[in-house]
């Protein structure tokens, strides 16, 4: 409902505001002694830059769900990392009003020598929560991850599915204000996949602000209010989800929606 969100924007400032965002990586040629010396004598700039984001602007309103689509390498993940504060913009501005929980960190991965329990605590603290807040959700996290007794064993003894489930459980239970979800969270077996996509739908229905990256357009059409389409670091379109998804599919030449949905 575009009209509604327009009215809302007059009253409350948007939760996420991105203005003319540029992000450059230095292309990672190994800095060997030889290269450094050669670089010095040649007086020629050897450093090349990769532009992952080129002047991206958009806003996300409080409580809305915004899908992000685009090809591989379009800059979707880079955009998320910048919103979380992991990467610093090369140019432009990112304003986030509220606390962001990134949900693309599968496996909390603090330390494999520590038990699942200890990792849950550290993961929560690193995301900026108070110890009591983590404690409150602890039982729910363990139950959701279906780890039972394994929670008190070192994480090095976990299977990759187990650590992925735990990572997902931590992120969704920390009562996020703003959550960024990367499609890669299709973790674990089919049953857990179903469970996690249900949980994502639940998050979307709550009043938290959600941004979600996915290749599956079905999920975007059903969950998202708005959609952002990136290509080669630029915004191709931004607007109501069905319109943007439609434009994207037409552009890619995959009008058959059913085929595209299988992508997920």
């Amino acid at each position: 409902m575009p009209f509604d969100s327009e009215t809302a924007s007059l009253a409350v400032p948007p939760t996420i505001e991105v203005q003319d965002l540029w992000l450059r990586y230095r292309s990672s040629q190994e800095a060997t002694l030889k290269r450094t010396l050669v670089g010095m004598t040649q007086r020629r700039k050897v450093t090349r830059y990769v532009e992952a984001l080129r002047g991206v602007s958009f806003t996300v309103q409080r409580g809305s769900v915004c899908g992000v689509i685009g090809r591989n390498g379009a800059g979707k993940s880079t955009l998320f990392r910048t919103i979380c504060g992991i990467l610093t913009p090369s140019e432009g501005r990112v304003v986030v009003r509220g606390h962001v929980t990134p949900l693309f960190s599968l496996g909390i991965g603090f330390n494999r020598e520590l038990t699942g329990r200890e990792n849950v605590l550290l993961g929560g603290l690193a995301m900026g929560l108070a110890p009591e807040e983590v404690q409150e959700q602890y039982q729910a996290i363990v139950a959701f991850a279906e780890l039972a007794d394994a929670i008190d064993y070192p994480m090095r003894t976990y299977s990759s599915g187990m650590s992925a489930r735990l990572g997902f459980a931590v992120a969704v239970h920390l009562d996020p204000e703003i959550v960024l979800i990367d499609e890669a969270l299709a973790a674990g077996d089919a049953r857990f996949k179903k469970k996690s996509s249900d949980k994502i739908s639940e998050l979307c229905e709550r009043d938290c602000t959600v941004m979600i990256i996915t290749h599956g357009v079905r999920i975007i059409s059903s969950l998202a209010d708005r959609c952002l389409w990136l290509d080669k670091g630029r915004v191709m379109a931004e607007g109501p989800a069905p319109d943007v998804v439609d434009a994207y599919l037409r552009f890619e030449g995959v009008l058959d929606e059913a085929t595209a949905a299988e992508d997920m």
Binding site: I86, S105, G123, M127
Partner: peptide, 9 residues
């Protein structure tokens, strides 16, 4: 590195 590229703190 794994942590730094995934979470901000």
């Amino acid at each position: 590195a794994g942590l730094i590229t995934k979470v901000y703190f």
